[in-house]
Design a protein around this nucleic acid. Sequence first.
DNA 1: TCTGGGGTCCTAGGACCC
DNA 2: TCTGGGGTCCTAGGACCC
Length: 441
Amino acid sequence: MNLHSQTTSSSSNSLFALVDVNNFYVSCERVFQPKLEDVPMVVLSNNDGCAVARSAEVKALGVKMGTPWFQMKDLAKKHGILAQSSNYTLYGDMSSRVVQVLRTFTPNLEAYSIDESFLQIETVLKQYQDTIELGQKIKQQVKDTTGLPVCVGIGASKTLAKLANHLAKKHKQFAGVCDVNAMAKEELYQWMSETEVGEVWGVGKQIAKKLKAQNIQSVFDLLQASPQAMRQQFGVVMERLCYELRGTSCLQLEEVAPAKQQIIASRSFGKPVTSQAELAQSVATHVARAAEKLRAQNSTTGALTVFIQTNPFKQNEPQHHQSVTIPLADPTDNTLTLTNAALAGLKQIYQASFRYKKAGVILNLIGDKPTAQQSLFDDIETKGKSAHLMKAVDEINTRFGNAAIRSAASGTNSTKQEWQMRSNNRSPNYTTRWDELPVAR
DNA sequence: TCTGGGGTCCTAGGACCC
DNA sequence: TCTGGGGTCCTAGGACCC
């Protein structure tokens, strides 16, 4: 159907910059409390559970991301490490300010995460002597406008830009800006052989372990591995990654964020919870937050999952991790409707004997009809029997996938049917096939 | 005593269809 | 003993990211 969906686009002359704020949460706190500059510090997760950001001084002490605060208290005392509770509203606001500054350089920007953006810079370059000058300018501009320190990595693919950014952060001689594209091959290979394979974007703990077992230790080793062989062992994502490392860009800039497929709202409890009433209260809160996010992206949801779980770290206590998915007759964004569904679900899975440590809800948006999708459906209806139909269906396919086509082709009940089908664990019997489309021929 | 909260994509395998 | 072939769609789970 869509021949292009599996292929990857490549262009030999793309150039990406990755701009990443250093120790983002810590840096945000320091902007508003300058006295914290140079103070070794961490920012803590909810309930002040564990460190989600560490200042350079703390990283130097070997404290890992996600270390529980109680485990590092001794170290903290010894080195005067300061802990801050997190303030996500503040970080979100600072994040958009940074993006705003970056947009003044180019509109071809992907806000990849709260503290990172990819920029496509081939066309911007003309105005600068070289990439390093551009990088320095970006760095200076962000610092002057927001007070936040950033590093800039540049490369021919997103993966290489990531790697460059890593080098810029880690090695002082780059002064915060590193372009692996402009480097002599020998120098790049030198850096690559000094960098552990686990640093590559997309190579996590598990894969790094397996790679090392076959003596692929460094980024350079991976560069030399055959992409086909890597695909055989680890799948298509890994193959793509190999090409990216070789400078063939396979991952495009995603300037407009695709609509979410899933919205999660969950929290750990400070203390274990045993009563259903207490769980119900937190579940209701989570539903309200999730529904807000849902409306913010102009969607409705066709199903809702509630889950509760015990403390997985308490291995000597009885464990319980239960969830239930509730299909909704009509897709909705109504908080009250969703709350009722969630509480009914909670009732089903709750067991009084357990000490619960976490509760949450997941809105599953597959089967919903966001605004953009709806307009395409309208297109089919109005253009009816013409070639436009196939074109519109094709466009829906590329943009929204098969689920959307089924919805489009089989009418307004499709969502309901789809969820009934899911919950009964049956395959659909209403799937409309290409050759059955009512008006195509 | 105390251990975050989001997300995505891919694959394997089963059910089902013709 | 033999036991189609080609395909879709779903779920669960694994791996990854920040």
